[in-house]
Write a protein that binds this DNA or RNA. Sequence first.
RNA 1: GCCCAGAUGGCGGAAUUGGUAGACGCAGCAGACUCAAAAUCUGCCGUUCGCAAGGAUGUGCAGGUUCGAUUCCUGUUCUGGGCACCA
Length: 991
Amino acid sequence: MEYNFSEIEKKWQKNWNDTKAYKVSNISSKPKYYVLDMFPYPSGAGLHVGHPLGYIASDIYARYKRLKGFNVLHPMGYDAFGLPAEQYAIEHGIHPAISTENNIKNFRSQLDKIGFCFDWDREVKTCDAKYYKWTQWIFLQLFNSYFNRVIQKAEPIEKLIATFTQEGNIHNEIPDASFQPSNSKFQISNSKFSAEEWNAFDEKTQQEILMQYRLAFCGYGEVNWCEALGTVLANDEVVNGVSERGGHPVIKKKLRQWYLRITEYADRLLQGLQTVDYSDAMKEMQTNWIGKSIGAEISFQIVKGKTLNNSNSFTTYHSPLTVYTTRPDTIFGVDFCVLAPELDYIMDIVSAEQKQAVEEYITYVKSRSDRERQAEKKITGCFTGAYAINPFNNKNIPIYISEYVLAGYGTGAIMAVPCGDERDFKFAKHFNIPITNIIGEHFNGEEANPTKDAILSNSHFLNGIVMKDAIEIVVDKLVELKIGKRKINYKMRDAAFSRQRYWGEPFPIKWKDGVAIPLNEKDLPLLLPDVETYSPGPEGEGPLANIESWTIQQLETNTMPGYAGSSWYFLRYMDNENETEFASKQATDYWNQVDVYVGGTEHAVGHLLYSRMWTKALYDLGFISFDEPFKKLVNQGMIQGSSRFVYRITLRADISELNSNELISNKFNSNKNIFISKSIFEKVKDNQELANQLLKSKFSELGIEGFEKLKNIEAALSVLHVDVNMVDGYELNIEEFKKWRNGEYANAEFILEDGKYMCGAEVEKMSKSKFNTVNPNDLVEKYGADTFRMYEMFLGPVEQSKPWDTKGIEGVHRFLKKLWRLFFDEMKGKVWNEEKATDTELKILHKAIKKIEEDTERFSYNTAVSAFMVCVNELADTKCNKKEILEPLLILLTPYAPHITEELWHTLDNVTSVLDANYPTFNPQYLVESSKEYPVSINGKLRTNIVIALDATQQQVEQIVLANDIVKKWVEDKPIKKIIFVKNKMINVVV
RNA sequence: GCCCAGAUGGCGGAAUUGGUAGACGCAGCAGACUCAAAAUCUGCCGUUCGCAAGGAUGUGCAGGUUCGAUUCCUGUUCUGGGCACCA
């Protein structure tokens, strides 16, 4: 009886399905455990071997926890709204709902073959109206809430309105300090208004003000606008400043956008990190993203640039230049100021001489993405002709604009201190701005020194003070002189929450006279209507703007972004059929936080921060009773593709002296595909002469005539991706290659090495376009799901990225066959027996239990797989076929290879499923040792091993070691300084 | 440019807290079984010197701390992920 994996896997998958083996109840006496995978987007390309890595990891953990006696929730669903389906619809006219549904079917059938323990009854799809009804509902909660800064918590907006009518906004300052109502009749001074003022505002003004507080709010923001395509582009649709499709210019354009006021949660998001089990790197990335910094805002009076008709006098601009700085101590080292080029008032302060240059520079910056602006090494900028006055010494400071200052951070203006900041230093050098040294010898004139420990000089009242002490002194002074204030800043910006696209959740919002009116909750879901075309609407609006029945109702034409549905899906799994609530309180109280969340670091700051914010908001509003969604995060690495290359050599020559008959009859064209093997390519790639010779001899070998008539022969080399699936290791399967791409290379010629065509290789991202994707189903077909699962885990640590190589899968398959042979012999049939196990056999088993349990617990699956191999190897060596040993081993292996273990489990006369067996308990008594073979080093170099009893004392050890011949040889008669003895580890003799 | 991570044999990786570098597997080499192949089993397998015994050397690179460093520190190179509208 041999290991027939395909039959076994089919059988048990059907059985588990029929018996609803993975159905999970919300009511159980067992402790709960929630294992979640990051929401997949069902892409049209289907699964490749990289996708299931995390799913297998979480599946193993879920199954392990179940064996450990937990009620385990392990659901799966689809983040089904998204750009690719819409793009596909634009190109093929197929409704995204249809293509998405097809993709999901394909995804599901691929997943099913791998044998996951998902409870499919809990499946959710974000594009399903039953689901997005609740996404819209949560949006309304956010819209109808504000963040009370006093208690650091979201509250219903009614409460804020009530406060306004009684006390104005004395205790609730407007988050955006520069806000003014559009109706100039109602101006707000100092961001403050009284109850009387509030009550006097008209309805529209009141709504405008409330919008400044709502957690989901409307504002204006810049988007990538492509005039030629008439549409807004995603960042990754823009390459080098032009659209990826068509290469049209892309500029920044301001459009009305929805936002989530995540900045209000900045501090809570930071604090929450202390309560969750994420990697330090992950916490650091989120912390840096939030980017909290403590500093000060300082106001400088602006002296406007000269105007032509009034060339001698400077005038003071009506409002000051406010900069944000974390280093107010360097105030006397400010040699210039830099503004973000998009600030409105630049054109008000620019001098006539500089006007044109500034305008040109602003146009240039408009075509640049934030990323490009920050990554740019070349220093660019433009003087405005205006000056800022240093409030402490009245020094005139030139004002520049430059792309390295971003409008979105701080005030969009900086005070530049070249002696202390590298970018400022380079800028000063570039524009020949004199540098003031305020840190004495700490500044060498060659590079900036960002120290905080220098003693200040050239700094008036700060002279002689250490920089870090000066910070507070300056801030106090700023406050005293009313020219600045203490300020905490966050790098994080409010989250843009709308897209000018079709395939997303519609906003439950109507517009009336410029006021956003939320739909009534009972009118949800607001269904996504069908459209004729998926092309954009007028003025950069989304496709919904093309539907008259939509616009006539004055419904919002933007749709929600991809992360709307994925910000709360983990809650819906808890109670996915609920039609009256997003999830019942009973369900969310029972399942509570996700205990283990498995996914890639690519979601480090996007998805994870958004879902953390949504959770906090829902918590604040009393809908759930926990304010962090994910207790523990496990980051899986990416599986990279291992691409294979072939090398083509083509002829370039002057054929003018050939007549056309010759051209047709000769075989230059039909034989243009000549491929040379890797090592030959390596030889000729930098040697044109050799390449030409190679080509010439190949042509004469092929009997192609007329070669000698050609002039200026030149061999051209090109490197082409070739499908990894037709390469065995590095050797190309030439027959398959000839059939590839509808026989494009059917007539190809090859120059081989040792009779083989060897390919080049490189590790790249796994993607269809690189022909390096491997379909998991092909491997499941060939080796079975159990082998595939274990091999994915055996590749390396879950959290590490690694290239895929199918070759090694044989080893894991052999392991399972070897396990099988412990139960069944090809000749003899059943070999397992019920004899009593020996101490040696128990030791093998318990060593495995200890190692595998520990490794599974810490997601070190690759070493666990090794431990299984070691165990089975040792059992085979000792010819152990005893049920007493094999049965617990099967349970250990169940999370990793559920099919084979279920089959063998039943072979051992069990009638219930192995899925609910009891995990074996480790007994340390079987592993007790009395002595150890100690490695003995002399001066840190290993020289010998000596077996010594474990209870030996330092003196006994020293005696034994010094009596050893090899030790004596190395010690010779040098004096012994010290003997280091670490019990159960090693011995080192220092001479 | 900024933030984060990684780098160990021909390859994937192991070494969990500073203590025998290379577990386990792949590939390769030699052998057993076989008419043969497959399957299976046994042995070898970082580099280098040596017939061997045994030595030297070796964890991206350059330094440092330590009796002892793949592990800690400083600097540096390269690769991967993210940088706010891919998901």
